[in-house]
């Protein structure tokens, strides 16, 4: 990357697709495109060839702020010992049916 300037690097985009019966868009991968319109076209061509989706989002990869994998311990391990946070310690009344 250091040898290339921003002008010559085609921007990277993250692609999210909502499947036929899915409720939310799910991250499916990334691609390179010069702008948002072409990114949407490329996402359609690369990621929905087998009928995977009915809606596409593309987001500039550099718009995503990600947690640092090196901070996994601090970020996520403390939650592992709090099993009482899972709603599994009470009986669901029959009248509730499926949840």
């Amino acid at each position: 990357m250091s040898t290339q300037t921003n002008k010559t690097v085609t921007p990277l985009w993250e692609v999210f697709i909502r499947s036929r019966n899915g409720l939310a868009h799910k991250h499916v991968g990334s691609l390179h495109a010069a702008d948002a319109t072409l990114a949407l076209q490329a996402a359609r061509d690369v990621y929905t060839r087998r009928g995977e989706g009915l809606s596409i989002w593309v987001v500039p990869s550099n718009a995503i702020t990600a947690s640092d994998p090196g901070e996994k311990g601090m970020m996520f391990e403390p939650a592992e010992s709090k099993i009482y946070r899972h709603p599994t310690f009470y009986e669901v009344p029959d009248e509730v049916g499926h949840m």
Binding site: T10, L31, H32, A33, Q41, A42, D45, V46, R49
Partner: peptide, 11 residues
């Protein structure tokens, strides 16, 4: 020129 267009043209 790019993988994305390779697939687009093939499609």
């Amino acid at each position: 020129p790019a993988l994305e267009e390779d697939m687009a043209l093939a499609n």
